[in-house]
Design a protein around this nucleic acid. Structure first.
Lengths: 200, 200
DNA sequence: GTCTATAATGAGATAGAC
DNA sequence: GTCTATCTCATTATAGAC
């Protein structure tokens, strides 16, 4: 299928360049050049740059969730250990020199003044899916308040990614992982989290 | 001092526009127009747009830290309560319709492919100052491992801001605040955090 | 110190041939 | 479906008068 091949070459080029440099600083010309096609061909497959941005995020959606799924690992260890492992994998991943944080969060921030933009909507949806997946894993593990815990762990993940990106220091992943593991442990024993929530 | 007045009018316009719309999507023309001066006058006071971006962040640096200082409040209550109050104030603040997250983090993300850019350096410095201030407050309160706790609370703050921005849902501030208060409480009693760290 | 006017460049998107 | 060539517009930055 030659049509698909050209289109996916363009999406691949968009993924590389948008993720590395950001949305606004990458031109359509640059993407066409990297894909080895002319701009006219690119505009044959995509209506606009915004359309291309949407395809870029779409391509990253499921693979990103799947990566976290593999980092959490199977249900054969205590959840605090699995969470520690997830953040440890995040640290390793962020050590790659071309790591640039979360493409979804970055897109939402770059397009912060365009609330209805498809990329902004997709970013929010993606984060919600990630959070729901976490809450589901916590529920399966029999923890208290899995939804709250999902929100807290997703928030720690977001914070760790931002801090690693700003300081170029992966140790924030470990620090965030310890915090997340503590919250999870408290929800497992019934100590701490539940008691504290009542006080709020 | 008429010179200062023009310059500060320009910086004020830059603050409003850069914070609301982002760095790359705001033109120098727009800033000059908002400031009520011509572009030539702007370029008399600033060498370049990058210079203006630097001035924008410089102007926000101290006021931002001071705002968090006031949110934490005085040392007359238990630290977990003060932390809860800080995040509660963040929620109120983020409810403002023109709130757009943290200008420093957003700048670092928009300029992610320019590691040496003055604005990127300033963003990192600002976050470090915020973290140091938090660690100092935790140390004064006699908590265990104030540095680690500072890193964790700063990470929760960053994560909460990102999540609020992406979902336009301020409840993440409360959720993050509860997590932070739990970590702080564990460091106060000596339970949990210290024990867990040994296990890692 | 501030103005009007104008480079000089790069961007997104399109025309029309093959 | 892909190409060469071009349009149109916005952007950063500057020239030179007052």
């Amino acid at each position: 299928m030659p049509e698909q091949s050209t289109r996916s070459k363009i999406v691949g080029a968009a993924e590389e360049l948008f993720y590395e440099h950001g949305l606004r600083s990458v031109s359509v010309d640059a993407i066409a050049e990297r894909a080895g096609v002319t701009k006219r061909t690119l505009y044959y497959h995509f209506d606009s740059k915004d359309d291309l941005i949407e395809a870029y995020l779409q391509a990253r959606d499921e693979p990103t969730i799947e990566r976290y799924r593999s980092w959490l690992g199977a249900d054969d260890r205590p959840m605090p250990d699995r969470i520690l492992h997830l953040f440890s994998c995040l640290a390793d991943y962020a050590r790659q020199p071309n790591w640039r944080g979360c493409g979804f969060t970055r897109a939402a921030i770059e397009l912060v003044d365009m609330p209805g933009h498809p990329a902004v909507v997709m970013a929010a949806d993606h984060k919600k899916r990630f959070e729901s997946w976490l809450a589901g894993a916590f529920a399966e593990a029999g923890l208290e308040n899995p939804e709250l815990l999902g929100q807290q762990v997703v928030t720690l993940t977001e914070g760790a990614i931002a801090q690693i990106l700003v300081h170029r220091d992966v140790s924030y992943a470990r620090v965030a992982g310890q915090a997340a593991a503590l919250l999870v442990a408290a929800a497992a024993t019934g100590h701490g989290a539940a008691r504290h929530r009542e006080a709020v």
